[in-house]
Computed example of a mutant assay.
Amino acid sequence: MASGIKTREINYSTLDGKQFTGYFAAPESTAPVAGVIVSPEWWGRNEYTEQRARELAEHGYAAFAIDMYGDKNVTTDAKQAYAWMMQTFEDPDTIVTRASAGLATLAAQEEVNADKLAAIGFCYGGKVILDLARSGAPLEAVVTFHANLSPKAPAQKGQIQAEILVLHGEDDSMVSLDDVDAFREEMHAAEVSHEVIIFENAKHGFSNPQADERAKANAVDLGYSAEAEKQGLIAMYELLDRRLGQ
């Protein structure tokens, strides 16, 4: 564990000039460390995402919570979150373009060893990093929590460099077990090293302590599970530590 961490916001842009603001956290270290991008739920780059970045820094990684909507836009309203998310689906290249810009920004920081990169993502953010991995991004590991697993286009052999860990709730009504099976088939066909862990009695959003509150406010089927969150984070760090050599 790091003895102390530092944080800062970083402005960055895509080639079309759209502006984004990410949140960077890193251990107080004299040597560059492995870097991890953190891709947020459809709510945007909020405090929860920043918390996960700080936790990664405390564990010894440099972490960058990326901004997928631009201008640091966040919401607690599901209709607004859905609208923003769907805007990123209008052009099939938007998600990978924005995620790639975030990954490049992370890799460019002086605290980061650009040869050791990984990505984690939650819900919509899980789809973001899976599509980033499918694009051939230089990632050692990818970890998703209650993610949309559907690809823009199925991965082909040799495309995905990362080892992938999918953490899924058995009672997730938004991403079915059939969707999980289809993902497994995609990974097997592309010969990608992967693991899927399915948590009993866990719903969509299981990793976020605010999931129950958001479910009630928006009439959506989310639910927090402290046990699934705990076991998911243990599995995540086991993979990151093994692949990134921490």
Rank of each mutant, 00 (worst) to 15 (best):
D221M: 03
K72E: 13
V143H: 07
K203F: 07
D241G: 09
P209D: 02
E50S: 04
Q210C: 03
T94G: 00
D115L: 02
A133L: 09
G126H: 06
M236C: 15
D77T: 05
N148V: 15
R54V: 06
A62L: 08
S29H: 01
G35I: 08
Y48R: 02
S29G: 01
P151Y: 03
K79Q: 14
L103P: 02
M187E: 10
G245A: 13
I95Q: 06
S3A: 10
Q109I: 07
E9K: 13
A226G: 06
R134G: 01
W43I: 02
Q161I: 06
L222I: 03
A119C: 08
P40I: 05
T30V: 09
A2Q: 02
Q51P: 01
A114Q: 08
I95K: 00
D179E: 13
H59C: 07
T14G: 00
T14D: 07
A119W: 05
G121L: 09
E110H: 01
T14Y: 01
K79L: 13
P154D: 09
D212H: 03
M236T: 15
A235M: 12
A219R: 08
T97L: 11
Q51G: 01
N201D: 15
V128I: 12
A26K: 01
L222W: 11
R134C: 02
F24D: 05
E90N: 07
A226N: 06
F24H: 05
L167P: 07
S39F: 02
A63E: 09
L106F: 10
V220T: 13
P138W: 00
I164V: 15
A26E: 14
Q80W: 05
A190V: 10
K157I: 14
A155S: 12
L165F: 10
R52W: 03
I129W: 04
F145K: 06
A190L: 10
Q87G: 14
T75E: 04
E9S: 14
Q246H: 13
S207C: 11
S207M: 09
I234F: 12
I37N: 11
P40K: 04
K116R: 13
H194A: 08
V38D: 06
A65D: 03
A235E: 13
K18T: 12
E191Y: 05
V96D: 08
S100M: 15
Y237W: 10
D16Q: 05
A189I: 02
A228M: 12
I198E: 11
Q231S: 15
E28A: 03
A57E: 08
E238P: 00
I160Q: 11
S150M: 11
A118R: 04
R243A: 15
D212W: 03
Y82F: 08
A153L: 05
F64T: 09
D77E: 14
L139Y: 04
R214L: 14
V33G: 07
F183A: 15
D77G: 03
E110Q: 03
N73I: 14
K127M: 15
V142P: 01
E110I: 00
N11A: 12
M174W: 14
P32W: 13
A119K: 06
T76W: 04
G22N: 08
